[in-house]
Amino acid sequence: MNFSWLMPETVSTFGPAIDSLYYVILWITGIVFFATEITLVYFLVKYRHKEGRKAEYIVGNHKAEVIWTITPFVIVVGLALYSKGLWDEIRDPSLIPADAYTIDVIAKQFEWNATYPGPDGQLGTGDDFVARNALHIPVDQPIRVNLQAEDVIHSFFLPEFRVKQDAVPGMNTPVWFEATRTGEFTLACAELCGLGHYRMKGSITVHSQAEFDAWLAGQQANGEDDQ
């Protein structure tokens, strides 16, 4: 059994930044957790009822209230401001790298359909081809996924990439990420989408650029065979 609080491996460029923000919060909350729980237990033991001892009549302390109002305020607002940069880097549409390789992903019950630009490099043209439940991307290259849904809301979850974004019918939501190593990773649906939700899974394979080009060429050849 794994009672670890350590984050599993991450393979995207901003994964380590998310993880270190997680560890910052884990440290802050961990310290507060131990401090308050130990104080609680200490008070319970120390001030347990004993014959002959009376409780002290104390109605409060203005200074203490001010301290424990301002301190948490500074910590949490600081944390929020500190997090803003990373959030913008990941989610601000104007900061998505312009040179990103673009894929359309359309979710429907219970599959992921990824549309790739064909040889012309343009989506929405006749030479596009579709890969079902299996994304393929090149390593060290920003990827932009235009996320859509056909029927109900799904959620595009790449745990190793620290990517999660709902796919909402009627919307086209951009997601971007960049893989830092090759390998095969998980694509999961993270939003309840019906009775087959639990098996709406796919994979994302990260190739070296050369391998990816070969895969693309193979797919395009298949596509031509089909026509």
């Binding site: 984050m7 930044a17 998310i18 923000l21 997680y22 919060i25 802050i28 909350t29 507060v32 957790f33 308050t36 729980e37 609680l40 949490v76 944390l79 929020a80 997090s83 990373l86 959030w87 990941i90 989610r91 959620s155 979850f157 745990p159 620290r162 990517v163 999660k164 993270a190 939003e191």
Partner: peptide
Amino acid sequence: IIGGLSGIFMAVAPVDIYFHDT
């Protein structure tokens, strides 16, 4: 205390990307 502190992880939007719906 535990429930309050664990909420902070999801309140921080970039960390919530991973923890949302888990």
